[in-house]
Simulated assay, not measured.
Amino acid sequence: MSKKYILLVLFSICFLGFSQSKKANSKFKVIAFYTAKNDQAHISFVHEANKWFPKIAEENHFVYDSTSNWDNLNAKFLAQYQVVLFLDTRPETPSQHEAFQKYMEKGGAWIGFHFSAFALNDSDYPQNWNWYHNAFLGSGEYGSNTWRPTSAVLRVENQDPITKNLPKTFSSQPNEWYRWENDLRKNPDIKILLAIDESSFPLGTGPKAHEIWHNGYYPVVWTNKNYKMLYINMGHNDIDYEHGTNKTLSYTFENKAQNQLIINALLLFGNSKK
């Protein structure tokens, strides 16, 4: 047996041992579902997320997987994971709806971004899932949004492990901000964590007048006390639509405070027992 062969075998054993040890030492597993087909801003965010989360997973010793196959939203597949992410859209079929609801009711955890909460009748994403939009998210239908994507000053509304080490107010990355049908302040199950601070107004640049907000109360991050869940309105990168380049002009994960919020939630949810 040659020395070269022996060295190769020893290297393989060491490498495999390291990989198995690394996997064995992982605290929990995260699965991200995405579509990444509609709206360049959402596609850009998904690509950015699928680069950022693996780095965070390595630093914090958990496993991050992602899939665009929403049929994986079934009991057998979900049983492998402690945290589910919806990066851009939501599940659409009755069987997927049922699997996700049961997963959450049995103690699973979820973090949803931006468009994952969108629902508007007479659109491609109608409000046809009452449990998700009303009982779970509490927001109901989409109401309106600001344009174009702009930074906002966000204010911590309630102290929570998820807001640990966040400043009382901070400036966000540029985002398209959503308004909702339901007033989340009136829902006893909802705990609002971040809202737009009044110093942000006017928020948006138009050109349409209704795309610029001058006043009002707008929650952007919240949790439902009955579940291990977090909704984050951020997730819409600024894109150069006007010149036809579709170039990404801003990145969601280039913000220390926003990132801390997400990491706090991941570690809280991932390390908690069902």
Rank of each mutant, 00 (worst) to 15 (best):
Val9Ala: 14
Ser66Leu: 01
Glu92Met: 07
Ser21Gln: 06
Gly235Asp: 03
Ala195Phe: 05
Phe15Pro: 01
Tyr125Thr: 08
Asn145Val: 00
Lys102His: 14
Leu203Ser: 03
Trp147Phe: 15
His97Ser: 08
Ile13Gln: 03
Ser172Gly: 11
Asn271Tyr: 06
Ala257Ser: 10
Phe28Ser: 11
Ile56Lys: 09
Pro161Ile: 15
Thr205Ser: 14
Asp240Trp: 05
Phe53Lys: 07
Tyr64Asp: 04
Ile31Tyr: 01
Lys4His: 09
Pro174Thr: 03
Arg90Phe: 13
Lys168Arg: 13
Phe86Tyr: 07
Glu141Cys: 03
Gln96Cys: 02
Asp39Gly: 03
Ser200Val: 05
Asn224Tyr: 06
Leu166Met: 08
Pro188Thr: 08
Lys55Trp: 01
Gly108Tyr: 07
Asn50Ile: 01
Pro126His: 10
Phe113Val: 01
Ser66Trp: 00
Ile262Asn: 10
Arg185Tyr: 12
Glu58Gly: 09
Asp71Ile: 00
Asn175Tyr: 04
Asn255Lys: 10
Asn259Met: 00
Asn121Ala: 10
Phe62Ser: 05
Thr252Ala: 12
Asn145Ser: 11
Val46Gly: 08
Lys256Trp: 03
Gly206Ile: 04
Tyr103Lys: 00
Phe28Gly: 08
Ala209Gly: 00
Tyr142Glu: 02
Phe170Gln: 08
Trp110Ser: 14
Tyr178Gly: 07
Gly270Thr: 08
Trp131Lys: 02
Ile232Cys: 10
Ile6Asn: 14
Trp52Gly: 09
Phe53Asp: 00
Lys225Cys: 05
Asn237Ala: 13
Asn74Pro: 03
His61Glu: 12
Ser139Leu: 02
Asn175Thr: 01
Arg90Met: 09
Tyr231Asp: 09
Phe201Cys: 02
Val220Cys: 14
Thr169Ala: 13
Trp129Ala: 04
Ala257Tyr: 10
Asp238Arg: 13
Ala265Thr: 10
Arg185Phe: 12
Ser95Pro: 01
Gly138Pro: 06
Asp39Trp: 09
Ala99Cys: 04
Tyr125Pro: 00
